[in-house]
Simulated scan of single mutants.
Amino acid sequence: MAKLLPDPSLYPSPREAMKAPPEDVAYVASIYTGTGIEKPDFIAVVDVDPKSPTYGKIINRLEMPNVGDELHHFGWNACSSALCPYAKPHIERRYLIIPGLRSSRIYIVDTKQDPRNPKLEKIISPEEVTSRTGYSRLHTVHCGPDAIYISALGGQDSEGPGGILILDHYSFEVLGRWEVSRGSQYLAYDFWWHIAHDIMVTSEWTTPRYFENGVDLDALLAGKYGNKIHFWDLAKRRHVEDVELSKDDRMVLELRPYHNPTELKGFVNTVVNTKDLSSAIWLWFLEDGKWQVRKVI
């Protein structure tokens, strides 16, 4: 009798995942943006098996059907968040969710039949994304316990607010905005969570007006680039608090929680300090019931 068991590639913590056998192929976004070449971006399939004669080489490529997507971050349809008590534990990790940063289009790619020869399964148009969410310029993908989450850096035009949209785990239908109450949050970039505590953390860059053509130095000095991280009630989808890192440290980007999922701590980077041009890494943590940050590097 067949048993309903979780996907064996899902692990209860990053520490456990690091003990797993290594992958033998990697998928790499390859883009033509800024090259002057009018060709579709593609996903390169790279052999990462050290025992293979084609180790380190591109062994296949999946071309997108459109020009100008600017593929960027992408992720799986399912991951270890499916092991949460209120999640969908029998969902299968097989699809890559690949958004276009510039086009706001989403590609769904199936890797199950032959991981070395992935197939395009579905395309979600930018018109559908924008009409259902009000968002554009899609960036980070995370597989949540209840849906697929994608961050968006802009609103319907070159302004904000940016935020998070969600897709159905099975049909990939665009379900709408994630936020019920966004509070003070306007700028967006990355997001992660302390999932055992029902807490989401988001960072902030700027609006499309100030990044699509490169950094705008006047806007940077005018404070148009973000300097905060935001904390949310993940279950209620409501903004709880924002914490300013400093007045001068700007472009708050990649979020990385502790590998121990019970710890309410994590790291985030800032790109530039407007006084001395330095970059920095910050620790966020909860102490005495209050979210705090400290520059550590």
Rank of each mutant, 00 (worst) to 15 (best):
residue 60 N to R: 11
residue 136 S to Q: 12
residue 266 G to R: 11
residue 191 F to C: 06
residue 116 R to W: 06
residue 63 E to F: 15
residue 225 Y to R: 01
residue 213 N to Y: 13
residue 235 A to E: 12
residue 241 E to P: 01
residue 173 E to T: 12
residue 234 L to T: 06
residue 231 F to G: 01
residue 261 P to R: 02
residue 141 V to D: 02
residue 289 G to F: 10
residue 219 A to M: 09
residue 250 R to Q: 08
residue 250 R to Y: 08
residue 9 S to P: 00
residue 26 A to P: 01
residue 16 E to M: 07
residue 160 G to M: 04
residue 185 Q to A: 13
residue 1 M to A: 12
residue 177 R to M: 07
residue 246 S to Y: 09
residue 253 L to W: 14
residue 160 G to Y: 07
residue 183 G to M: 12
residue 99 P to K: 02
residue 138 L to M: 09
residue 197 H to L: 08
residue 75 G to D: 08
residue 238 R to Y: 01
residue 266 G to T: 12
residue 37 I to N: 10
residue 13 S to A: 11
residue 212 E to Y: 02
residue 227 N to A: 10
residue 167 L to M: 02
residue 256 R to P: 00
residue 127 E to Q: 14
residue 270 T to F: 03
residue 143 C to H: 11
residue 272 V to P: 01
residue 227 N to M: 04
residue 48 V to M: 10
residue 198 D to G: 08
residue 176 G to F: 11
residue 286 L to P: 01
residue 18 M to T: 04
residue 11 Y to C: 03
residue 192 W to A: 13
residue 229 I to H: 08
residue 70 E to Y: 15
residue 223 G to H: 09
residue 91 I to L: 12
residue 268 V to N: 04
residue 220 L to V: 13
residue 152 A to H: 03
residue 55 Y to F: 15
residue 99 P to F: 03
residue 264 L to R: 09
residue 196 A to S: 07
residue 92 E to Q: 14
residue 134 G to M: 10
residue 44 A to D: 08
residue 160 G to W: 07
residue 243 V to G: 03
residue 41 D to E: 09
residue 231 F to A: 00
residue 253 L to R: 13
residue 263 E to T: 06
residue 131 S to R: 15
residue 177 R to Q: 14
residue 287 E to Q: 13
residue 59 I to S: 06
residue 141 V to F: 03
residue 146 D to T: 12
residue 113 Q to D: 14
residue 18 M to A: 13
residue 87 A to S: 14
residue 193 W to K: 04
residue 158 S to V: 08
residue 190 D to H: 13
residue 99 P to T: 06
residue 224 K to W: 10
residue 142 H to I: 14
residue 157 D to K: 10
residue 161 P to D: 02
residue 48 V to H: 13
residue 238 R to K: 15
residue 206 T to W: 06
residue 155 G to E: 08
residue 202 T to F: 07
residue 173 E to G: 11
residue 96 L to G: 10
residue 56 G to N: 11
residue 18 M to P: 00
residue 11 Y to Q: 08
residue 13 S to P: 03
residue 71 L to Y: 03
residue 225 Y to A: 04
residue 263 E to N: 13
residue 238 R to H: 05
residue 104 S to Q: 10
residue 123 I to Y: 02
residue 141 V to K: 02
residue 224 K to T: 06
residue 191 F to I: 08
residue 135 Y to V: 00
residue 91 I to K: 09
residue 29 A to R: 02
residue 211 F to W: 11
residue 292 Q to Y: 00
residue 256 R to M: 12
residue 66 N to M: 05
residue 37 I to P: 05
residue 252 V to S: 05
residue 281 I to M: 15
residue 212 E to A: 01
